[in-house]
Write a protein that binds this DNA or RNA. Structure first.
Lengths: 112, 112
DNA sequence: ATATTATTCAACTATATGGTTGAATGTAGT
DNA sequence: ACTACATTCAACCATATAGTTGAATAATAT
């Protein structure tokens, strides 16, 4: 089960999306409750257009799903991309835990 | 145990570091074995200086640790920042699992 | 059809990023 | 002190990103 890293533009999109505080904050909001673009925008001092752009970035990374409902666009979180990012990071955590465990064993072994 | 998202420049640095394929690849390499800058650089068609810059980005995000050994600088992975990113993403995964579970319960309940 | 509300697009600006080349620094060996 | 090797710095260029403003589109209500 090897993790292929080469040329993974999804990860590029996901991580660069998450590299912005406003976008992380938006993600946090919509993870709790689906919201229209306007409802999201009113929490920030940015212009409506700026928020719209941020949403576009998040959508492109498949972190959110946009769906029209009447005049409004309803935004909700999409789990897939986050799961992907999570999977990616877990690999390293796992690796590190293994190294620490081995070190621990080594030290414990030497002591007795 | 609330996750504070506001103004978290560490997360900015971590995620924007991870948003680049070369840097993810470097991280992958040094997670397996500590390497000098030169040993890392020779695997890419980029210039030495470019790799040096990427390493600087990773170091600033606390994703790697740089340590001089003789003429060389030895690079190894640092677990802390990755753990932080992981923690961040887990929050959302957890949230989503909860929603799916609830949906499942709801559907199961209706069926009987 | 017109107006109102919600959102996006286009054009533009400023700054950040990723790359290059060539000079500069740090360390070790002679 | 001189040379060689490993790495970084400085200056520069091209492209991407985050923001703005004002016009354009989309859906609903009158």
């Amino acid at each position: 089960m090897q993790l292929t890293i080469s040329r993974n533009s999804s990860l590029d999109a996901i991580f660069s999306s998450l590299a912005d505080e406003t976008r992380r904050d938006i993600l946090n909001r919509v993870s709790k409750k689906q919201l229209s673009v306007g409802e999201i925008a009113k929490h920030y001092k940015l212009t409506f257009a700026a928020i719209s752009k941020h949403l576009k970035v998040l959508e492109k990374a498949s972190l959110i799903i946009k769906q029209r409902r009447g005049k409004e666009q309803i935004i909700r979180i999409s789990p897939d991309a986050l799961a992907m990012a999570n999977k990616y990071l877990e690999t390293y955590e796992q690796h590190w835990e293994n190294r620490l465990n081995n070190l621990d064993k080594l030290l414990t072994g030497k002591k007795s």
